[in-house]
């Protein structure tokens, strides 16, 4: 107290002035025509982040792809060699997040967001929940059988070789890369062109909900 309190008392009028100045400044920047952040445009207007995430500049797209594609691939491979279930789930989380950003690079924004909401928010929590319900100690590990490892290695390497052959050996018919699709278009298509699959999926979700609840319910005499 003492010195500070006196300073404040002395400074009170000045303080009010400064406060007024702050409010005035903020109000001025508040004027609608001063477009600081985005210039009022959407994604197609460009900008650093949309260049990286929207892939409109080749350099940015390459950087984004190698960064997040690399992360996705690395963490996917890390899942294979992790024994701790929770660690596996966290690596899966990294993969899913990176894939979501890849969707952004592919200008599928809606899909990218849904990927995060459904996977990171839903499925992953479900998985960790499952782990917690079914694990005896926080760091329980399953020994990996040598046979399983060998079989997995052989199968996946063969598969990978085959896929690579297919990917690199085929001359894909390529058109012009398409831009982003408005969510409204996607929504309209879901309820017109894809109405039947959409409804089928809805029914499936209902069935799954009932089925999961039935399976997970506590048995009582």
């Amino acid at each position: 107290m003492g010195a500070n309190g006196e300073t404040v008392t002395v400074l009170k009028p000045q303080l009010k002035l400064i406060l007024a100045a702050v409010i005035a400044c903020m109000a001025m920047t508040a004027a609608p025509r001063v477009a600081m952040a985005s210039g009022g445009g959407g994604l197609d207007e460009g900008g650093f982040v949309s260049d990286v995430l929207g892939g409109s500049h080749p350099l940015f797209e390459a950087v984004g792809f190698y960064l997040f594609g690399g992360l996705a691939a690395f963490s996917a491979i890390a899942i294979c060699f992790t024994k701790d279930v929770v660690r596996m789930a966290i690596w899966l989380f990294a993969t899913l997040g990176a894939v979501a950003i890849l969707y952004f690079l592919l200008t599928a924004y809606f899909l990218g967001v849904i990927q995060i909401i459904v996977y990171a928010g839903g499925t992953l929590v479900l998985l960790i929940f499952g782990v917690m319900l079914t694990t005896k100690s926080p760091s329980m590990q399953f020994a990996v059988s040598k046979i399983g490892l060998a079989a997995g290695g052989v199968v996946s390497l063969l598969l990978f070789a085959a896929l690579m052959g297919l990917v690199l050996g085929t001359d894909w018919q390529r058109g012009e890369p398409t831009g982003s699709i408005p969510v409204a278009t996607l929504g309209r298509d879901l309820l017109t062109t894809y109405l039947v699959p959409f409804e089928v999926i809805s029914v499936l979700l209902l069935v799954v909900m009932i089925g999961a609840a039935y399976l997970a319910r506590q048995e009582r005499e």
Partner: peptide, 28 residues
């Protein structure tokens, strides 16, 4: 504000919801 947005996206609301969901993973 109407022009005071970092990235004015079609799916702006969903991005925020998604990010609030990811936060939970950190807590877990």
């Amino acid at each position: 504000g109407a022009h005071w947005i970092f990235r004015n996206m079609d799916v702006g609301l969903l991005v925020i919801v998604a990010m609030l969901g990811v936060e939970v993973v950190g807590v877990i």
